[in-house]
Amino acid sequence: MPHATFSTPLGTCAIAWNDTGLTRFLLPDPERPASGNTEAEPPHWVGDIVDRVKRHLIGEAQDFADVRYDFSRVPEFVRAVLKAALEVKPGHTASYGDLAAAIGLPPAASRAVGNALGDNPWPLLIPCHRIVAATGKMTGFSGPGGVATKVRLLALEGAQLLAE
């Protein structure tokens, strides 16, 4: 599967694609080799996404809802949760219960929603970092850096965060 790595102000990201759409996106990780480990030259449409990610990570909030994702690679429930998460725009947050309601499920499905977000193959692009506990507390984030990365991304987007 073609993929490329690229440098951002927060570190090296990686992106993978096929003819259908994006198959994977990886947030900066201190364990990932530095830029230059690109295995394929991204097509123009992927290059545009890379440019938007770079802008997003310097504080120019981008909405990635228009990106072509290869949703065939994720189970139907995860797909529904991820598509609902795309509706949460930069600078805003929603609760796990809000996402459950958006896909027609009761608040008790919040844990299942959280598990589905943990399987998000496109963190940042599909904004699982914008989903918080009903109390506004920052909980679980499976990306590199955990909750600290979640808070950093939300702050970059100008989201209002609750102090403890």
Results as ranks from 00 to 15, higher is better:
residue 50 V to M: 13
residue 153 L to M: 07
residue 21 G to N: 00
residue 163 A to F: 08
residue 80 A to K: 06
residue 58 I to E: 12
residue 40 A to R: 01
residue 107 P to K: 13
residue 125 L to C: 05
residue 68 R to W: 03
residue 152 R to D: 14
residue 71 F to H: 05
residue 102 A to N: 01
residue 95 S to T: 06
residue 143 G to C: 13
residue 118 G to H: 08
residue 153 L to Q: 12
residue 145 G to S: 12
residue 151 V to P: 12
residue 31 E to W: 04
residue 133 A to I: 10
residue 148 A to F: 15
residue 162 L to G: 14
residue 100 A to Q: 03
residue 50 V to T: 09
residue 8 T to L: 03
residue 111 R to T: 15
residue 114 G to N: 11
residue 136 G to E: 01
residue 20 T to G: 01
residue 42 P to Q: 14
residue 11 G to C: 11
residue 5 T to C: 09
residue 135 T to M: 02
residue 38 T to D: 09
residue 14 A to D: 00
residue 49 I to G: 07
residue 86 L to S: 02
residue 43 P to N: 12
residue 10 L to V: 03
residue 90 P to M: 12
residue 130 R to K: 00
residue 67 V to N: 03
residue 26 L to P: 02
residue 78 V to M: 09
residue 142 S to G: 10
residue 23 T to D: 00
residue 116 A to C: 10
residue 153 L to W: 11
residue 56 H to V: 05
residue 31 E to L: 09
residue 88 V to N: 02
residue 135 T to R: 08
residue 118 G to W: 12
residue 10 L to K: 08
residue 115 N to K: 08
residue 8 T to W: 01
residue 118 G to R: 06
residue 109 A to D: 11
residue 41 E to Q: 13
residue 96 Y to R: 05
residue 13 C to E: 10
residue 19 D to T: 01
residue 145 G to P: 06
residue 1 M to G: 02
residue 126 I to D: 07
residue 161 L to G: 11
residue 142 S to V: 14
residue 164 E to M: 09
residue 31 E to T: 09
residue 63 D to I: 03
residue 73 R to M: 02
residue 48 D to M: 06
residue 73 R to S: 06
residue 112 A to S: 15
residue 136 G to K: 07
residue 15 I to Q: 01
residue 51 D to R: 14
residue 132 V to T: 07
residue 164 E to P: 15
residue 9 P to E: 08
residue 135 T to W: 05
residue 48 D to G: 10
residue 52 R to L: 00
residue 15 I to E: 03
residue 44 H to D: 14
residue 140 G to I: 03
residue 148 A to L: 13
residue 41 E to T: 08
residue 1 M to R: 13
residue 155 A to V: 09
residue 98 D to T: 00
residue 49 I to V: 13
residue 82 L to V: 00
residue 119 D to Y: 14
residue 39 E to V: 13
residue 54 K to Q: 15
residue 37 N to E: 11
residue 128 C to F: 04
residue 122 W to S: 04
residue 32 R to P: 13
residue 121 P to N: 03
residue 89 K to I: 01
residue 150 K to E: 10
residue 140 G to D: 07
residue 6 F to Q: 08
residue 125 L to G: 04
residue 76 E to G: 07
residue 137 K to M: 11
residue 106 P to Q: 10
residue 112 A to Q: 15
residue 130 R to Q: 11
residue 37 N to F: 09
residue 54 K to H: 14
residue 19 D to G: 04
residue 51 D to G: 12
residue 61 A to C: 07
residue 120 N to L: 12
residue 117 L to E: 06
residue 100 A to V: 10
residue 72 S to C: 03
residue 84 A to M: 02
